[in-house]
Structure formats: structure tokens, C-alpha cells
Design a protein around this nucleic acid. Structure first.
Lengths: 176, 176
DNA sequence: TGTACATCAGTGAACGCGCGTTCACTGATGTAC
DNA sequence: TGTACATCAGTGAACGCGCGTTCACTGATGTAC
């Protein structure tokens, strides 16, 4: 049957949002199209009324996820909370332990690097906006972003809790 | 038929080495057991004479890759070339463009974070040795490793060449 | 030292499962008159 | 405003392919006597 056009837009957004969360949490390859659709409250067949391929969804999900990061960066930039508080927000246990709600670059950057041009474009455009959101020196922003991202990636890959805690802690200290 | 025991060890090592390269280049999920065995000069069925599962191979490959990184770090530590030259070696276009020969953590860290405990253990032990290989302050080593890793990950995920070149360049400068 | 035999790395066909994708069908929506 | 009909998001079964894994088999190696 035909469904209201208004709801269709909402469903489309729900698919992207839910996919973004699942992808960040478990990686592109470990999340099924069917799983995404189920989480969005639909059946898998309907997927192709919204996207041509799974790869298209990946790109849309990265664009969405980068959008979330841009908003966070802009909020911090506007409230002038400074770099220190941004690092504190980024480098904590909550972020480390719940990648599904966290930074897209820290969760999917390596997979994006091996992905399609479309995927990289979404990543790249997001990064560009994140870097300029802070407002300070561009090289500083790049350096800080790299250090924060690296800190989270390392902390997530280490299972010894003391060691894992030590990583964000050290990065925070040295970033000053 | 039965094969010489000596060659078997060499074959086993070849499988791990080749797997490590392929995994770093294309990710765990995008490399087939059959593909690894073919690259090692064997057929896929023989795989299970060497490993119980693909996951076991992943852990062995990460351990091997981390070993390569440890050797590099120790060499630099021994020759006292300093942090600057280490950063130069790590943050260049060659490393960015050939992940198969490069740092395991920068290529597979995010997948390791979602992987088995065995996989994380191999990663973690390698990181521990890399950190102490330099000999300097531990917090400095952690910070530097995070920044370098983040720089390579970002540079690889960005396709605009100017932008991509700008990232390692900035990290190198700011690491001083 | 020679002989008989058990071992087991390696081969290649086959299995079975899961996943991305397709397709015939549905029926309320939105449009044309 | 009412009526006829075309559209198309969504359903759920099915397809087909690729992958990890299994298995019967091979025959030179290594061992026991």
C-alpha cells in the first residue's frame, strides 16, 4: 500500500540515524541491512525504496554522524569553553565505552579510508567543518583532532582497564 | 602426502606474514582465508592444519604486525635518533599510501577494538612494548603514539591530496 | 641399515549459512477530471 | 465536492553468491623394530 509522504521522510531519517549508531558501534561489515531496517521499525525489503545500495547508506550514515560532531564542535566554539573542556568531553570513559553515540571518525575512520570515494567525501567534508568550528588556528585544530582521535582508538583497543584509562589521561595532560 | 616438518614452520610464518599485510591493507573482513592461503602459495583447505579459525589468524597477524612496529621503535630508540625523526618516519606519504607495510594500530585499531579478547591482547601487549621501546617518559610516549596514529588515520580517510598532506604536516610541526 | 607402517600437511570438492539484493504483490495516498 | 485510478512505500518470500569451514583422500616423511 501507499504510505503518507510525510512519514516517509521521517522514516528515511530514522534509517540513517539508526544505521549511524549501529555502524559506529559495530563497524560497517558487522551490521546487516536487515538489522538496520528492523531497528528502524521496518522490514528489509523496504530498504531499497530509500537507498540504492548498502554503500549509499554508509555514506549517508557517515554524513549524519559527522553532522553530530560538527554540532558538538560548534556548540563548544560558541560557548567559548576552550580546548581543555573539549578534550575533557572527548576523552572520557563514556565516549570510550559507547562508540555508538560517539565520534564517527574515531569509530569508522579506518574503514572509511578503505571505502568508496562517496564515503570518503562525506568524512572529509565533515572533518573540514569540524576543524573550522572551533575558530582557532587550523594547524592546532588538526593536531588536537588527531591526538584526541588516536587516544580514543588506543583506549578502545586495550582491554586492561588501568592501561586503557591511562591513555586518555595522558593525552589530556599533554594537550594541556 | 606428508610434508617436511621444517618447511611447515616456514609455511606457517609465511601465512601469518602475508595475512598481516593483507589485513592491514584491506581490513580483516575484506580478506578471505582462501586469499591469504593463495598468497602464501597454498590451498585454502590447508589453512586448518595451521589455525583453528580465521579469528586465530587475525590474532597471530596482529601479534606479528605489532612485532614489526616494536622492532622499528627499538631501532630508533637504540640509535638515539630522537622523537623528531621517529615522527618523520611515521608521518609521511609512503606510510599513508601503503598501509599494508605500515603500522598495525593505524590500520586495524578500530577493528581490534570490536574484536575478540585474544585479538585485543595481541594489540595491547604490542603497544606496551612499543611505548617502552623509546625509553623516555611514558606519558610522552602515549601522547606521541596517539597523535601519530590519529594523523595517519585522518590522512588516509581524506581524499583531497592537499588536505591529506596538510594533516601529517601539521601533526609533525605541533609535535615539535 | 633396511623394512613396514603410522602420521599428518596439504589438496580440492562440497557444505551450509548469512547476507545483499530482487520481485510479485498490497492498498492507502494523492491526483486528475 | 465526489469519483476513478495511478502511484509507490512497504511486505515477505526467494535468489544467488561468497565465505568460513569440513571432509575424504593423498603419499612422502619420520619412526619403530
Amino acid at each position: 500500500m501507499r504510505y503518507p509522504a510525510k512519514e516517509t521522510v521521517a522514516k528515511h531519517e530514522r534509517i540513517v540515524k539508526v544505521a549511524s549508531r549501529l555502524f559506529r558501534k559495530r563497524g560497517f561489515e558487522n551490521v546487516t541491512v536487515g538489522e538496520v531496517m528492523k531497528a528502524a521499525g521496518l522490514t528489509h525489503g523496504a530498504f531499497y525504496a530509500h537507498f540504492g545500495t548498502k554503500q549509499e547508506l554508509q555514506a549517508a550514515a557517515v554524513a549524519y554522524g559527522q553532522g553530530v560532531s560538527i554540532d558538538r564542535a560548534k556548540t563548544h566554539g560558541a560557548t567559548k569553553m576552550g580546548r581543555r573542556s573539549y578534550a575533557d568531553m572527548y576523552l572520557n570513559q563514556g565516549h570510550r565505552d559507547t562508540p555508538g553515540n560517539g565520534c564517527t571518525m574515531a569509530a569508522l575512520g579506518q574503514e572509511v579510508a578503505r571505502g568508496t570515494s562517496e564515503l570518503k567525501a562525506a568524512f572529509e567534508q565533515g572533518l573540514e567543518e569540524i576543524l573550522s568550528a572551533g575558530g582557532g588556528d587550523r594547524k592546532d585544530a588538526i593536531f588536537q583532532t588527531a591526538a584526541l582521535l588516536g587516544g580514543i582508538v588506543l583506549a578502545r583497543a586495550v582491554q586492561n582497564l588501568q592501561f586503557s584509562d591511562e591513555i586518555p589521561e595522558s593525552v589530556r595532560q599533554k594537550l594541556g
